[in-house]
Design a protein around this nucleic acid. Structure first.
Length: 565
RNA sequence: UGGGGCGUAGCCAAGUGGUAAGGCACCGGGUUUUGGUCCCGGCACCCGCAGGUUCGAAUCCUGCCGCCCCAACCA
């Protein structure tokens, strides 16, 4: 994996890691970790974090742990653990033996909590959640100390033990750190370390009824695993003093936490809450809907792990939060697919073409190049006959300037076929163009220029009507019509910006016969249209393709410019 | 508002006292049997703003402005 090359100037985290290696701060070790909570599917934002965590470890000869941060049994499930491991592996990363679970550390965390109680740094508090909120104060006013703050060590020990034993109801008591109710940092106002939660855990079952909070657990997990560089997103910057406090009070191994800006993408949402809403409210057809920014959605859409990694590398790593353009992701995708996707011809919106001077029962096998970017990909045969389909948008009866495709009287090339000239237009009763009557020039076989040196301005793709396979093609567009659906006026809802045209299903498309038996997951370039991949629901009898991304389309841009003028 | 961060082109992002890398987008031109790819060229007299220090500042100092995060027994 050498595509993770870096340009001039290391990002600030790699600079720190290199400096630490140079000064031997961690005995030359580099240990990072990716710590997802198994309560949802991974998305492109996680891909950035994964490429940072695993990428840095890999580049500096270290290791990266995959750790399930499963401290809240009420939302976590085994299903998510499986999807997470699958997605990380698919992205191309390997944690070796280092798959861990926070829940495996519960006993150690409990012992450390007892240690803090004994040191008079933690206490059992009987305040309810509401009371807790009242006592905490606000961002501008200091909080009040809990009336239970000064219980004796013995009483705290006994109560904490009884909490563990299940003697109290959910929410009845908590274990809190005794820090400073007047701290300007809200997180330091005696944060909760344990809450009572009588719920079955996906791994530890009913062994526990008290669970550590994230703030208490997270730093300990990193410490237990001897992580050197604990990389996380910006919002945890204010938590760092808390983690430092716990680790220092305990006197245990102390990793260094470094925060960076998480990924945001235009025309989509990346918050777990909104992603869940999209699925549950039926705006998409599941977590792996090809419109979803989830790893599974991108995979089904036809993205390659290489293109996602390349994207993550190119957007850089810094502390300024911003929004990256999906266009950049799409660029990385096209660049990758251009090199590897075999070319085929497919007609999405067919227009019948009859070549009047072509023999009725003749079928010629034309040679077609599989991939002009890869000579090793070879060639294939494509049948040509008297009746063909071309794309409806490749013909205009009254073409505007700069439209140089087919029109009455005009000659174009059929790729790998022949030059044809449009002689007549057949319409139905409503005036719709339903068929083109054309002639071909036998001297242009294979699409070659004729001996007289005649040139044409356009080359069209086509399929032979009698040989083509019918297929369903699903066209996707951005899920949202608004560049940043998160930025809203007061009272507005992000759902108002769902793109009603994010999915268009074309039921009767025609693809060239070489696509018979195409295997789900395989990517192709449909010439002049875009990159498409075979959907998992596709069968030999009913081929189904997803449009991954269109090709860059200069003609579309010209039309758009004219329309906006 | 108290605290913690961040502000370099339309979007990302290097640069850490010596006179603004790179990518995407965009605009030209060339090649082309994909209006694709590829190639070539253009695109910040200026680094949130205002002062100051210095021979010299995006880089140092001061003040101001803007944006993000923290008031879940979520992570």
């Amino acid at each position: 994996m050498n595509e993770e090359r870096r340009g001039p100037g290391l990002d600030f985290i790699r600079a720190i890691v290199e400096e630490d290696i140079r000064t031997n701060k961690w005995d030359g070790r580099v240990v990072t970790r990716f710590p997802p909570e198994p309560n949802g599917y991974l998305h492109i934002g996680h891909a950035k974090a994964i490429s940072v965590d695993f990428g840095i470890a890999q580049e500096y000869g270290g290791v990266c742990h995959l750790r399930m941060d499963d401290t809240n049994p009420s939302t976590e499930e085994e299903e998510y653990v499986e999807s997470i491991t699958e997605d990380v592996r698919w992205l191309g990363y390997d944690w070796g033996e280092h798959l861990y679970y926070a829940s495996d550390y519960f006993e150690q965390m409990y012992a450390w909590a007892v240690q803090l109680i004994k040191a008079e740094k933690a206490y059992v508090c009987d305040l309810s959640a509401d009371e807790f909120r009242d006592y905490r104060g606000t961002v501008t006013q200091p909080g009040k100390e809990s009336p239970y703050r000064n219980r004796s060590v013995e009483e705290n020990l006994e109560l904490f033990e009884r909490m563990r034993a299940g003697e109290f109801d959910d929410g009845a008591r908590t274990l809190r750190a005794k820090i400073d109710m007047a701290s300007p940092n809200m997180l330091l106002r005696d944060p909760v370390m344990y809450r009572i939660l009588k719920a079955s855990h996906h791994r530890s079952g009913d062994k526990w009824c008290i669970y550590p909070t994230y703030d208490w657990a997270h730093g300990l997990e990193d410490s237990i695993e001897k992580v050197t560089h604990s990389l996380c997103s910006l919002e945890f910057e204010v938590h760092r003093p808390l983690y430092d406090w716990f680790l220092d009070q305990l006197g245990v191994y102390h990793p260094q936490q470094i925060e960076f800006a998480r990924l945001n993408l235009t025309y989509t949402v990346l918050s777990k809450r909104k992603l869940i809403a999209l699925v549950e409210e039926g705006h998409v057809h599941g977590w792996d809907d090809p419109r979803m920014p989830t790893i599974s959605g991108l995979r089904r859409r036809g993205f390659t792990p290489e293109s996602i990694r390349d994207f993550c590398r190119r957007i850089g790593l810094a502390k300024a939060d911003g929004v990256n353009e999906v266009g950049q992701l799409e660029h990385c995708l096209r660049e990758d697919l251009n090199k590897r996707a075999p070319r085929v011809m497919a007609v999405l919106r067919p227009l019948r073409v009859v070549i009047e001077n072509y023999p009725e029962d003749l079928v010629e096998e034309m040679d077609a190049v599989n991939n002009p970017e890869d000579p090793g990909a070879g060639t294939r045969k494509v049948p040509f006959s008297r009746v063909l389909y071309i794309e409806q948008e490749d013909f205009m009866e009254d073409p505007p300037k700069k439209f140089y495709r087919l029109a009455p009287g005009r000659e174009v090339r059929l790729r790998y076929g022949y030059f044809i000239t449009c002689k007549d237009v057949v319409k139905d009763d409503d005036g719709n163009v339903v068929e083109l009557r054309c002639t071909y020039d036998p001297e242009t076989r294979g699409g070659d220029n004729p001996p007289d040196g005649r040139k044409v301005k356009a080359t069209l793709h086509w399929v032979s009507a009698a040989h083509a396979l019918e297929a369903e093609v699903r066209l996707y567009d951005h899920l949202f019509t608004k560049e940043n659906p998160m930025v809203l006026e007061e009272g507005d809802d992000w759902r108002n910006y769902l793109n009603p045209n994010s999915l268009e299903v074309l039921g009767s498309c025609w693809v060239e016969p070489s696509l018979a038996g195409a295997v789900p997951g395989t990517q192709y370039q449909f010439e002049r249209l875009g990159y498409f991949c075979v959907d998992p629901v596709s069968t030999p009898d009913r081929l189904v393709f997803n449009r991954t991304v269109t090709l860059r389309d200069t003609w579309a841009r010209i039309q758009k410019q004219h329309r906006s003028k």
